[in-house]
Design a protein around this nucleic acid. Sequence first.
DNA 1: GTCTATAATTCGATAGAC
DNA 2: GTCTATCGAATTATAGAC
Lengths: 207, 207
Amino acid sequence: MSPTDLAPDRIRKGERTRTRILDAAADVLARRGYAAATLTEIASVAKMQAGSLYYHFDSKDAIVEEVMAVGLDHAREAIRSALKAVGDKASGHDRLMAAVVAYITAITLDSDFTKANIRCYEESPEATRENLAVPLREFANGWVRLIESGQLDGSLRSDIEARVVARMTIAAMNSVVGWWRFDGEFHIEHVAHMFASTVVDGLATDS
Amino acid sequence: MSPTDLAPDRIRKGERTRTRILDAAADVLARRGYAAATLTEIASVAKMQAGSLYYHFDSKDAIVEEVMAVGLDHAREAIRSALKAVGDKASGHDRLMAAVVAYITAITLDSDFTKANIRCYEESPEATRENLAVPLREFANGWVRLIESGQLDGSLRSDIEARVVARMTIAAMNSVVGWWRFDGEFHIEHVAHMFASTVVDGLATDS
DNA sequence: GTCTATAATTCGATAGAC
DNA sequence: GTCTATCGAATTATAGAC
C-alpha cells in the first residue's frame, strides 16, 4: 500500500502538525526577528514543547528557511495574480502600479510568512540567504523587467537604471511592514495607492 | 587642580580608548547587526579583551546605544549642512532633493556609525529604541516638514500625506546601505541623484 | 509523536591579580 | 586600565521514557 492510498485525514495528521509549527514560527519570526525568536516561544505558540519540534524539523534554521520561502512564494503569487488581472496589454506604467498595490497589500494583510521573510532576511545566517537566493533573484528580476518594459513602451522614464530603481522600490515597499498597523491611522489601500502614485508619478507638481 | 587643567594628551588618554571601542563597535554592528555582534569581536577589533570593555562601558547595550546615537547625529548634521548650503530661499522641491542626496551620501560614504544605526535599529532592544526616540522623532519630523513646506510653496504635490511619504522615503534611502558597495557597479552620487529624481519627480514620463 | 531532562555552546557580565 | 578566569543565564539540540 503506497502512502497515497491512505485516507486523507490519516495521511495529513503529521503534515498538519508541521503546518501548525510553521504558522507559529511565522508569527514569532515576524514579531521578534531571527535572533530573538526562540524555539521555546515558537513551540509555545504551537502548543508544544521545544524538544518536540525536532521530530518535524532538523534545526531552527530549517524552520526559518521554510517560513521565509513560503512568504516569498505568497508575495510572488499575489503579484502574478494582480498582473494577470490587469492584463498583458496594459502599459508598463499601469502594470507597475498594479504590482506595487498588490505587493503592499500582500505583505501587510496576508499571513505572517511574508512579514517574517522581510523582517528576518538580513539577520538570517548566510547559509539561509544562499538557499533563498534563486527565488529571491527571480523576485527582484520581475520588478526590473516590469520597469524595463515600461521604459520600452514609453510609459516610464528611460534615464534611470531599472535595476537601481527596482531595488529601492522593493525596499521602500518592504518598509511599510515596519510601521503600518491594522488598527492605525491609515487604510492600507490608501497607503498602497499613495505609495504607487508617489514612486511612479513622483512628488513634484509639474516637470 | 581641576580636570580641565590637565595636559590635553593626558586628559584624552582614557577618552581615546573609549573612542577606539566605539569605532570598533560601529564596525562590527554595521557588518553583523545587533544580535550577532559579540563583545568578543568588538574587543578584538579594538585590540583588547572582552572583559576590558567594562571598564569603559556598563553593558553591551550602552555601547550599542552610543554608537547609534552618534550615527544619527552624523546623518542629521550632514542634512543640516546641505540645507544650509542650498539656502532658505530654495523651493521645497529643491531642498528635498538636496536633503536626499546629502543623506544617502552620508549613510554610504561616512563612518560605520550611520550604517550601524540603520542596520541595528529594528533588532535592538526596546529600551535602546526608547532612549533614541526623541532624536529619531526629530529626524523624522524634519523630513515631514521638508515635504510639507514644499506642499505649501506649491513645488510638491498636496494630495499625499507628508507623514506617510516621509516614512517611505526614509526607508527607501536607508535601504541603499543594504546593497550599495563602494567598489560596485554604481557611483553613489549617481545612485543618490537617481533616487532623488525618482522619488521627487517620479518614474512616469508625463503627468 | 510528544514529553522531560539534560548535554553542549555561546555570550554577557563580574572578580581579582597585576 | 587591561588581563585572565569564571560565573550565570539563555538557547539550540539530543536522549530516552512513555
